[in-house]
């Protein structure tokens, strides 16, 4: 399954029960809602309310979902896949396995907007320290900085040496 992060903007009539008409189909197709933002300040001339909904879903089901929303009368203004555009690598040195490396890596996941996309671990001996290079992708530099800050914090707690890149616009 190839899960993608989608931001969907729909225009809803400003009365009770409208939002549910959008959320239910997403949920039924196995989508995972990440965030909902009512854009109250941006009402349309026809007094409709734009609502931005972020969710993760299997990419194959996206087209069908949008089709069913439209056929049920929902005004879909835009559908965008959030791309992870910023990438960097960090090096971790320490007792990575004993301190639960998957927990370490998961700490940087920010609602699908930042995640570990690649990892290479080098473990010379069981009792000694191991080394990993971890590639992190995020939806933009701000999210990437946020992810690195989270990782820094968990490494501090687990006494892992984190070596950050010296790249131009990072950190």
């Amino acid at each position: 399954m190839n899960e993608v992060l989608i931001t969907l903007i729909v225009e809803l009539e400003d009365r009770p029960g409208q939002l549910l008409k959008v959320l239910e189909p997403i949920s039924k197709m196995g989508g995972n809602i990440v965030g909902i933002v009512h854009q109250r300040g941006k009402k349309t001339p026809l007094n409709r309310l734009p609502v931005e909904i972020s969710f993760k879903i299997d990419s194959k089901k996206l087209e069908k979902l949008i089709g069913s929303l439209r056929s049920s009368g929902i005004l879909v203004r835009s559908v965008n896949e959030v791309k992870l555009t910023a990438t960097t690598s960090v090096l971790l040195i320490g007792h990575l396995i004993h301190t639960d490396i998957s927990d370490t890596i998961q700490s940087i996941d920010i609602d699908g907007e930042a995640e570990c996309v690649e990892m290479h671990v080098n473990m010379p001996e069981i009792s000694g320290p191991s080394t990993a290079i971890v590639s992190i992708s995020a939806a933009g530099n701000e999210k990437l900085k946020e992810a690195l800050e989270k990782l820094r914090e968990i490494c501090r707690r687990k006494k892992i040496t984190m070596i950050e890149p010296v790249n131009e616009d990072l950190v």
């Binding site: 040195i93 080098n122 010379p124 290079i133 590639s135």
Partner: peptide, 25 residues
């Protein structure tokens, strides 16, 4: 301040695969 004592030879190996080296900056 973090020193260089904990840097392992493997660190250079894995860093190099991604096109990096390590320096005290």
């Amino acid at each position: 301040r973090v020193g260089i004592r904990k840097i392992t030879p493997e660190a250079f190996k894995v860093a190099k695969e991604k096109g990096y080296t390590i320096r005290l900056i």
